[in-house]
Design a protein around this nucleic acid. Sequence first.
DNA 1: AAACCGCCCAACCGCCACTCC
DNA 2: AGGAGTGGCGGTTGGGCGGTT
Length: 272
Amino acid sequence: MNMDLRKGPWTAEEDTLLNNYITIHGEGRWNSLARCAGLKRTGKSCRLRWLNYLRPNVKRGNITLQEQLLILELHSRYGNRWSKIAQHLPGRTDNEIKNYWRTRVQKQAKQLKCDVNSKQFRDTMRYVWMPRLVERIKAAGGDSTPTAPATYGHHMSSQILDMPRNGEFGLGYSDPGLRPEFSGGPSEGSETQVSPVSDMTDYYDFSGGHCSDSQQNGVISYPEQADTSSGCLEFEGLEQSNGWSLGGGDSLENLLNDEDIWFLKQQFFDDF
DNA sequence: AAACCGCCCAACCGCCACTCC
DNA sequence: AGGAGTGGCGGTTGGGCGGTT
């Protein structure tokens, strides 16, 4: 009924109005809040703006390696339940995680010409990207000691990062209500930062590096996966036949170059 | 220099669940 | 019980921007 409701990008004035009102009166009852604050917006719009942008401690951009790993793991568990995933990433909104997934992860699936929900793609994430993320977090986060990266509580970090040498991989949340504790705001300390456009690439290195500990003998066991028919995926012979290895890199964008895509198709997507 | 293209992300939309009267 | 109002969630869109031709 409201004829002059505004849509589209928020102005600085609107942000100020919303911020000031919530500072004084608190959030909630969004429709009446919008009216009382003098905003020509729907309650929904106000709520979204507050939760995704104005709310204190909200983090935007620079999704860390640790956060990437968490997102991948949590998505394998929860699927597209973004708000559920966001609960484990303090300061991150469901919207941002959803955007991250669509722009970064789904892009890789697209390059592989497979469905992002397919078992093949999930396996690629689990057995290739995630172990590589763990390695890179370890490498960037410091050393081989149990010391946690700055952004994680020790409980979480020990679960995520102390990947057993026998190649088992899994975050192993023993507590379903576990929430990793980040030490501070964005861009702090030794937190492993990645640029918004370099998230998940560069984990493949076909130039001839070495296979990681997590993939010794070319076999990765993944005992915690209940939703796949096999908990073990063979990487045997990959290096020999293709010179494939999992060397380091700095960004995921280059993770799947043309050769990588070709190779992965050969290995995992032979229905092409 | 300008046109084009693809990516990113803020914001909107539709649906569903919950609460209150 | 049921209808209205509201909140929350996942999917989708479109504008801005940077890179490329």
